[in-house]
């Protein structure tokens, strides 16, 4: 009984800071929520509207498309961290350089890339200057390019954090393993595949989970500053649409329903991933 009292503070904190707001959002998702004013009960109308909405289907597709970025955002920092670990003198300097984008606000990165990728921006100007004018595009306004560009910008923005995390994990591997493998004639790729990846698998999994959660609940600043979800809804993500529905359109109830859908999706993706990981470990 006394033991239960010890955990009471954290139960209260979690309950007040986490569960109550979630319960509130779930309850409001069944209303025509007008914060501060009367919010009549509308049953499942908000959910039905989402299910029938072409825009919401497009948003789900966008979200699924961005999942294609996960391998890039994982493999790229892993390879760079591995190269820094094995081949580069004073790797700390390079780690600092790579980490630099992580210290910049996403909004600043977004605004920066808005200029870089503008029709008359440096990317198009450079392409024209080297005779590749045919490759110039309206990078942020072309429906086909909006999402790949976001994946590219996120690759740049997340690279530094990934490199630092993987570098820290790599430093925990016994150097003898690499030396022995090198003596046995293993090349860099073989060392990466048979030593590095298995040794830091749990860190890689953690990184992927962080990316997944970020992808669903944390890309708002990039979307807001880069494309505003456009053109149309072609680059809108769920978190951006929640903001848009609530604060641009004033559809707070619909935004609450969307938040609940987002919560379910994140729970399924992260929970599913955890189950797969557990099953794989128990098999091993």
């Amino acid at each position: 009984m006394l033991e239960a009292l010890y955990v009471l503070p954290i139960v209260i904190v979690v309950g007040v800071a986490l569960l109550l707001p979630v319960a509130s959002v779930v309850a409001h998702s069944f209303t025509d929520w007008q914060p501060g004013y009367g919010s009549p009960w509308v049953g499942d109308r908000n959910y039905a509207e989402l299910l029938q909405s072409d825009q919401f289907h497009q948003i789900l597709f966008n979200q699924a498309f961005l999942l294609l970025g996960i391998p890039i955002w994982t493999i790229l920092p892993l390879v760079i961290a591995s190269l820094l670990h094995e081949r580069v003198p004073v790797p700390g300097v390079f780690r600092t350089i790579f980490f630099f984008p992580a210290t910049i606000s996403p909004v600043v990165i977004g605004i920066l890339f808005t200029f870089i990728l503008a029709p008359t921006g440096p990317v198009n100007a450079s392409l024209r200057a080297i005779g590749l004018g045919g490759l110039t595009h309206n990078w942020l306004v072309d429906e086909r390019l909006g999402k790949p560009v976001i994946i590219g910008v996120l690759a740049w923005a997340t690279l530094g954090t990934g490199v630092v995390i993987f570098a820290a994990a790599l430093s925990g591997i016994a150097p003898e393993l690499f030396e022995a493998a090198t003596l046995e004639g293993a090349n860099w790729w073989q060392r990466l595949r048979y030593i590095t990846v298995p040794s830091i698998r749990s860190v890689i999994e953690l990184w992927i989970v962080i990316l997944l959660v970020t992808l669903f609940v944390g890309v708002f600043p990039w979307i807001y500053s880069l494309t505003r979800g456009g053109p149309g809804y072609s680059s809108t993500t769920i978190d951006f649409d929640i903001y848009q529905n609530a604060l641009t359109f004033g559809y707070f109830g619909l935004a609450a329903a969307e938040a609940v859908v987002l919560l379910v999706i994140v729970a399924l993706v992260v929970g599913g991933g955890a189950l797969v990981g557990r099953a794989r470990r128990s098999m091993a």
């Binding site: 306004v141 505003r228 456009g230 053109p231 149309g232 848009q244 641009t248 004033g250």
Partner: peptide, 19 residues
């Protein structure tokens, strides 16, 4: 205001005939 927001989002697509 919401009508304006929807229109503004669609304008580039209308002008490029994507919609």
């Amino acid at each position: 205001a919401p009508t304006e927001a929807t229109l503004d989002k669609l304008v580039p697509q209308i002008m490029t005939k994507k919609v």
